[in-house]
Write a protein that binds this DNA or RNA. Structure first.
Length: 496
RNA sequence: GGUUCCGUGGCCGAGUGGCUAGGCUCAGCUCUGCAAAAGCUGCUACAGCGGUUCGAAUCCGCUCGGAACCUCCA
């Protein structure tokens, strides 16, 4: 609202000025996880990307309805429209109700997102909670002649859709004939008319645990359908932003466009956004490759590729230092660098919150520094407006940090900045870091004890009892903290 | 094979025609009981080969190397 935000739209392959359908309201839908297993760090990257977008949109004045679903049925193991339901398979393996699986991993997902300081979505709908909507949608598509039934299953008819003006493949840039040529129909006896057609509704085999009654018999919805039904239900037949990982572009999002368009006659989404993959040694992190990290392993440092533990904020900072559309490679060295950088910012945050402006007429204004601060603040907005360039945004925060530290150490007088610039520095540093980037202080809460020890430290130091001084210092060090002996004061900080 | 993308200094990572981010590491200085912190200073890169241009990491071509997607995946 207050800022000219541009976003890269996968559909047009260009950065576009963001103009919501009905400002100040924004509708945003993000494909959530399939809750059949623990989320790994690659999944987390996507959700943190859109958490940052949500935060920034809110920060610049939009009222965002943020919908992120939970897939709790319909996502199949293995190839396409055959294979077991992921959740059903886990349930059988563990001899529990499918909904127990769903609940367990939903809880885990929520815990993990909270650890990373992600704001919960406005609505978090589930596929099983929208069975009626999905069955209705299938009926509408059948009536329109854009779907057909075969042996109790219903498939989307891509050929018919394209004949009615659809353009299946436009998001991922695929050409239908190419797709057809490349697709080898392994089981020649598919009930689909074309191998490209995708399932809207699947007949449930007798042993299938998750099943619902429908006009076509007992079955369950296809994976792509839930997102179409839930997004249109809560955001309307056309909405502003749809996000997800790049690996969902095809076929999932392509199918969503086709379904939405077929159902309502509208292209469902105005801005498609895709975040890139987290890689390990240059390869995509994924469960099937066996190279994935669980957040819990990261926090504990227990993964065999990790040299040490890393905190959630370190990881969040690490991810924000790259652009969301670039692949980001995971490595110990990069994490260690991120840890240090994050802690410097966190120390700055702790310190500036305690600072206030002091007038001093004997200090003359430093216009160069004032201008530098104004410029950094302005450039932060420009970076975020430029398709959420958090890496450049963070660079500005380090410029601001420099001035925060100089004020803190008395190397710079607040009065030299003037009240306006001092206040700009303080509020910008705090809100950019905490509200927009979601980076907060994490660490010691036993401040009274620390303060008491610091008082002792000061006394010992005055008395030149350096052995006791060193003792207190090592106590702090054991807590992951450092004592800072500065010219005019003594304080503690998070050890970097 | 098809589609798309990438290759930036010791490491990570921004940057689509001129102003050549930032973080981490390293070295030096200031400060200091010693440290640490902080500030300052230094290190200046764009895979290779051609081309376009007054000027290219940025545009075009080729070569080499890597990745994602092509019905598991955020």
């Amino acid at each position: 609202m207050t800022q000219p935000l541009t976003l890269y739209n996968t559909l047009s392959r260009k950065k576009e000025l963001f103009n919501p359908l009905s400002p100040p309201y924004v509708g945003m839908y993000v494909c959530g996880p399939t809750v059949y297993n623990y989320v790994h760090l690659g999944n987390v990257r996507t959700f943190l990307t859109f958490d940052t977008l949500y935060r920034y949109l809110t920060f610049i004045g939009y009222k965002v309805r943020y919908v992120r679903n939970l897939t709790d049925v319909g996502h199949l193991v293995g190839d396409g429209d055959e294979g077991e339901d992921k959740i059903g398979r886990m349930a059988k393996l563990e001899k529990v109700e499918p909904m127990e699986i769903v609940q367990r991993f939903t809880n885990d997902f929520h815990t993990v997102m909270a650890q990373f300081n992600a704001i919960p979505p406005s609505i978090e709908p589930t596929a099983t909670g929208h069975m009626v909507e999905q069955i209705e949608a299938v009926q509408v598509l059948l009536e329109k002649g854009l779907a057909y039934e075969a042996n109790g299953s219903v498939y989307f008819d891509i050929e018919a859709y394209n004949k009615q003006g659809g353009n299946y493949g436009k998001l991922s840039g695929r050409i239908l004939d190419d797709l057809l040529n490349e697709t080898r129909d392994l089981d020649g006896q598919s009930e689909k008319r074309s191998p490209l057609d995708f399932a809207l509704w699947k007949r449930a085999a007798p042993e299938h645990l998750m099943r619902w009654n429908s006009p076509w018999g007992a079955g369950f919805p296809g994976w792509h359908l839930e997102c179409t039904c839930m997004s249109t239900k809560y955001l309307g037949k056309q909405f502003d932003i749809h996000g997800g990982g790049m690996d969902l572009k095809f076929p999932h999002h392509e199918c969503e466009i086709a379904q939405g368009d077929a159902l309502t006659g509208h292209d469902p989404v105005r801005y498609w956004m895709h975040s890139n993959m987290l890689t390990v040694n240059g390869q995509k992190m994924s469960k099937s490759l066996g190279n994935s990290f669980l957040p819990s392993e990261l926090f504990a440092g227990s993964h065999h590729l990790l040299e040490q533990a890393y905190s959630p904020m370190t990881v969040r900072f690490f991810m924000l230092q790259s652009h969301y559309r670039s692949t980001l490679d995971f490595s110990n060295d990069a994490l260690k660098a991120a840890q240090k950088g994050y802690r410097r910012l966190a120390n700055g945050l702790r310190v500036i919150k305690q600072m206030s402006y002091q007038t001093d007429d004997s200090v003359s204004a430093d216009e160069i520094k004032q201008e530098d601060i104004r410029k950094a603040v302005q450039q932060f907005y420009e970076a975020m407006n430029d398709d959420l360039n958090t890496a450049v945004g963070i660079a500005q925060l380090f410029t601001l940090l420099k001035y925060v530290n100089m004020l803190y150490l008395g190397q710079l007088q607040g009065a030299a900045l003037g009240n306006d610039v001092f206040t700009l520095l303080k509020t910008s540093f705090i809100t950019f870091l905490q509200d927009v980037l979601g980076l907060t202080e994490e660490g010691s809460d036993n401040q009274p004890v620390l303060e008491g020890l610091l008082t002792l430290y000061r006394e010992y130091k005055e008395q030149r009892q350096y052995d006791k001084v060193d003792q207190i210092r090592s106590y702090f060090k054991a807590q992951g903290l450092a004592i800072k002996d500065m010219k005019h004061q003594i304080d503690w900080a998070y050890e970097e």
